[in-house]
Structures are given as C-alpha cells and as structure tokens.
C-alpha cells in the first residue's frame, strides 16, 4: 500500500514533512522591481497625503482662530468707540438727572461689554488650534475673561450708584481698574505668544517672570 494514499476507511496517516514542497514562484527581476516600486510609491503617497492633510487641517484651524479673534476685535473696537465717547462727555456741569442718565449709559456700555466678551470667549476658547498657537489662544481667552470681569464691576458700580451707595461704587470701580490692567497684561502675553507661534521661536519669558527671577538672584546674593 502506498503510504501517501491512505484508504478512505483506513487509519489516518500523516504526510511526511520532509516530503512537503513549496510551490515554486517564478520571480523575475522585473516583477521584483515592480513590487518594490509599488510599495515605495504607496508609502510615499501615504506620507505626502498625510502631511498635506495635516497641514490642511492646521491651516484650517489657524484660519478659524484668526476669524474668531478678528470678529472679537471688531466688536471690541465698537465698544471702545462707545467708551471713548462716553468718557469724553464733560460731567462738571451736569444736573442730577443728567448725571443719572450718564451713569445709565455707562451701565448700558458695561452690560454690552460683558455680553460681548462672554460671547467671544465661548467661541475662541472652543477653537482647536495647532499646539504652537495654544499659548496665544489661552492668553486671548484670559484677556477676554479679564475684560468681562472689568465690565461686570462697571455694571456693579452703576448699580451701587443707582441706590446712592457711592462708596460701593468706588470700590467696584477700583476692582474694575485692576481687572482692566490684568486684561492689558494678557493682551501683551497674547502678542508675544502669537509672534512666537508664527516665527517658530521660543516664547520669551514675561517681564514679571524676568523681574521675579532677577529678584531671586538678588536674594541669593544676599544670603
């Protein structure tokens, strides 16, 4: 009996491994080059495509960030115009009714500023930006937060004036001034972060950080 041809009803017989033979593939030089070329082509296409897609997405993100900051700045510019006009109004010869109307206008500007900054803060903070722009985005959101706080204090000051609590009004104005200075500092940070993102440079340290570090050095010198 041929061991390689077992009977159907007979016992199972394993083939002998040494007798297995791989089918012979006829590889020619042309076919090998074509396969390698195809593989390289696929890898290159995938890499280039991925890079293009990544850049496209990053550009889209920066464009969206630009658009949102631009819209925010346009609205803030309008508010700035209203504030400037309001602050230029002389108050040294107003009647009581005119003083009250002046403060109501102040309150209207404050409420509008508070709503506008909250609105743009929601939009800008939701932007997905490339990592390089994260610092700029964070600083801009912080600036809007501080401005929102300043406008809220303005609104509170106007409310205190309405009930003739002038001490409370003055306290709120002092708080608003402090928030406004924080806003200015945040805008400075934003400009620095944005420049660093666009130039691909290291973010220079903030002035207060430098001063703090210098102060530490001085302290160490005295120890």
């Amino acid at each position: 009996m041929d061991p390689d041809s077992p009977e159907p009803s007979g016992s199972l017989k394993l083939p002998k491994l040494p007798d297995l033979k791989l089918p012979k593939i006829a590889v020619t030089r042309e076919k090998a080059l074509a396969a390698a070329g195809t593989a390289v082509f696929v890898v290159v296409v995938a890499f280039v495509g991925g890079a293009i897609l990544f850049n496209y997405t990053a550009d889209q993100q920066v464009a969206a960030f630009h658009s949102h900051v631009s819209a925010s700045e346009a609205d803030l510019s309008q508010i700035s115009g209203k504030i400037t006009a309001h602050m230029r109004t002389p108050t040294n010869d107003l009647s009581v009714a005119e003083c009250d109307a002046h403060v109501r206008e102040f309150a209207a500007i404050a409420n509008y500023g508070r709503d506008v900054t909250a609105y743009h803060r929601r939009i800008v903070s939701a932007d997905t930006v490339p990592e390089a722009y994260a610092g700029a985005q964070s600083a801009y959101v912080r600036a809007l937060d501080n401005l929102n706080r300043a406008f809220t204090f303005w609104s509170s000051a106007a409310g205190a004036y309405a009930v003739q609590d002038y001490n409370a009004a003055n306290r709120n104005i002092a708080e608003a001034d402090a928030a406004w200075r924080d806003y200015a500092a945040a805008i400075t940070d934003y400009d620095r972060e944005l420049r660093a993102a666009e130039e691909g440079a290291e973010v220079p340290p903030r002035l207060d950080e430098v001063l703090l570090r210098d102060g530490d050095d001085d302290l160490e010198g005295f120890q």
Partner: peptide
Amino acid sequence: RYVPEPGEY
C-alpha cells in the same frame, strides 16, 4: 456731582 469714573478704560 458724582458719577463713577474708571481710571482704566
């Protein structure tokens, strides 16, 4: 005459 006048605006 008193009106609230912010120093920073």
